[in-house]
Simulated scan of single mutants.
Amino acid sequence: MDNYKYWTADRARKKQTALTRLANGLRNEVVSDSRTRGLFTDEEVEAMQIASNALSNAKRKFEHLKEQKARDERRKAASSERREQLCSKAAKEVFDSLNPPRNSINKEILLLWITAASVNPSDFRPDAFIYDIEDNMGEHYLSSDDELRSRHVSSMASYAYESFKKYLNTNWRFDVRADDFIPQMPLSEKVTELLGLVNHPQYEQNERLLVRYIENIEVYNRKVSAVERRKGFHSVDSDQPK
């Protein structure tokens, strides 16, 4: 069955169905049909009977192949889902460990995100407009510029999280013998490696290149924090007895 190593369960199912139709066609339309059988010699009918039996045997082999491939696909899907869960959980822990403002990002998240995306062969460095909180300012339909900024930082947070997850996912490499992805190190060590990118030359370079973008994000975060503090003060005042 090595010739079918890269077949899917669906492809094996289709082959099984095709062979079943051929076997049933010979058996029902010729061998078992006395009127049609009369058009052929005994030797030809016997040959078609043998062919029908052979096709039925082949059909059973492909049925077995289909079941085997289906089991493999379920195993791989479960393995992939497990990797996804592990990387998602670890990426969120990395994100949260950098103390992001509520519904926003900060300098540390931005720099680690851009650095991780830049050094990861499975990722790509995002275009500048993606991490520019001032992008499209003055050309939108929203009620205020800060509403657009809020959407921008929310989008950045999602991009950063996905980039961290992609970086952590590179911990798994495909092993031909195991026919599965195998971790190269404990995931906790990969997390440490990701956080350690703060010492990567690319991180220092990004810190210089992204000064304007960082400052704009920090200005927005301070403004939001000030608004929330004022709301807190008003709430305390309203709770005081008259």
Rank of each mutant, 00 (worst) to 15 (best):
T41P: 03
R173C: 02
Q184Y: 05
E43A: 14
I182N: 01
R229S: 03
N206R: 05
K15I: 10
Y220T: 08
A51S: 13
D175H: 04
P121N: 11
S88Y: 13
N57P: 00
K69T: 09
E189K: 15
N169H: 09
E93Y: 09
A70M: 10
N24A: 10
F233K: 11
D180M: 02
L26P: 03
Y220R: 11
I214P: 00
N199L: 09
D237K: 13
M48H: 08
L65F: 06
E193Q: 15
M185Q: 14
Q184P: 00
H200M: 06
E218L: 04
A47E: 13
R35P: 00
V176K: 12
E193M: 11
N24R: 13
T8Y: 05
R230V: 03
I133K: 03
H234G: 04
D175W: 02
D239Y: 09
R177Y: 08
R222G: 04
A47H: 12
M1N: 13
V30P: 01
D145I: 02
N99F: 09
T170I: 06
T41C: 02
D175N: 12
H200R: 09
N24T: 05
E81C: 01
N216P: 00
K107E: 15
Q184M: 13
S122T: 12
V219H: 09
W172R: 02
E84L: 13
F40D: 07
A116V: 10
F124K: 15
D123L: 09
L209H: 07
S188V: 15
F233Q: 08
R125E: 10
F62A: 03
V94R: 11
A18G: 02
R37Y: 00
F181G: 00
R75M: 01
Y141L: 14
L22T: 03
L26C: 02
T20K: 09
R229T: 05
P126E: 05
Y203E: 08
K66R: 15
K242W: 06
Y220I: 07
D145G: 03
I217E: 01
R177I: 07
H152G: 00
L19E: 04
A226R: 02
E44M: 15
N199V: 02
F164D: 07
P201F: 11
I130Q: 14
E218H: 04
E108N: 14
V31W: 00
E134D: 11
V236F: 12
K190S: 12
I105W: 05
L168E: 06
A12K: 04
N221D: 07
M156S: 01
Y6M: 07
F129C: 08
Q16E: 12
E228F: 01
R27M: 11
F40I: 04
V236G: 00
E84S: 14
S52H: 06
L98M: 15
E67S: 15
